[in-house]
Simulated scan of single mutants.
Amino acid sequence: MKNIKSLLYLSIGFLTITSCSDDDPAPEPINEEEIITTFTATLVPQGGGTTITLQTRDLDGDGPNPPVVTVSDDLMPNSIYDGTIVLLNETETPAENITDEVEAEDEEHQFFYTVGGGLNANVEYANFDGNGNPLGTAFTLTTTASSSGTLAFTLRHEPTKPNSGLADAGGETDLAVTFSVTIQ
């Protein structure tokens, strides 16, 4: 009987040791989604002229207040603008520049531009990730004839790259903003 008890304790001890193996894979680290309260696109006309700022600020996130959307001026016809995007998290003091994180993780992000509503403009990428695929925190906006419409910016996290545009990019939308603009 004493041998059976000893054998039972030995078996339980063996099972306990083998069930606590180091072979289990470590859990993947969680990459928390960035908080983006402020989007600013700055458009500087090549050859001189008025710099245009497109901005949306939503300091209370999903709170009761709508975002404050501003467009500083009209765009000029037949012009080329060099554009840059800055993303901020203004819930922190000082404000955290999320653009730095997007650019550091360039292979996991891409901005998409959508020109709509009859706006006579075209947008081209001006910066790219480490694999030569579009990133889009810098861009070129070319206007033609006077018109009005919309200019939308969408930031996707982990899109399929390369892609032919927003429709087949996949990934998750980190930000989507639309501005009503006029060329005159």
Rank of each mutant, 00 (worst) to 15 (best):
I12L: 15
D22Q: 15
Y113L: 08
T16D: 12
E90K: 03
N127T: 06
N133H: 12
L166A: 04
A95V: 01
F14C: 13
T173N: 11
N89S: 07
I85N: 05
Q184Y: 14
L141T: 00
E103K: 07
F14T: 07
L119C: 01
P45L: 10
L151P: 07
L54I: 00
T182F: 11
G63N: 04
H157P: 05
S146Y: 04
S79V: 01
T140R: 09
H109G: 02
G13K: 09
G49F: 09
G61I: 09
G49M: 06
T140D: 09
T40Y: 07
E33T: 14
G165Q: 06
T150L: 02
L8R: 09
G149T: 01
T37D: 03
G116P: 07
T42N: 03
A169D: 00
T70H: 04
G48W: 04
E28D: 14
V44I: 14
D129G: 06
G116Y: 05
T114Q: 05
I30K: 10
T70K: 07
T40V: 13
I36T: 09
F139W: 01
E33A: 15
S72H: 03
L155G: 08
E32D: 15
C20G: 14
T182V: 08
A121H: 03
V115D: 04
P67H: 00
F111I: 08
V177D: 04
T40E: 09
E90R: 06
V69L: 08
V115W: 08
Y81W: 04
G132P: 02
I183G: 06
T38P: 02
T137V: 07
L8T: 12
L175F: 07
Y113W: 11
N120M: 11
N120W: 04
N127M: 02
T84Q: 11
T173E: 14
A126M: 10
I12T: 11
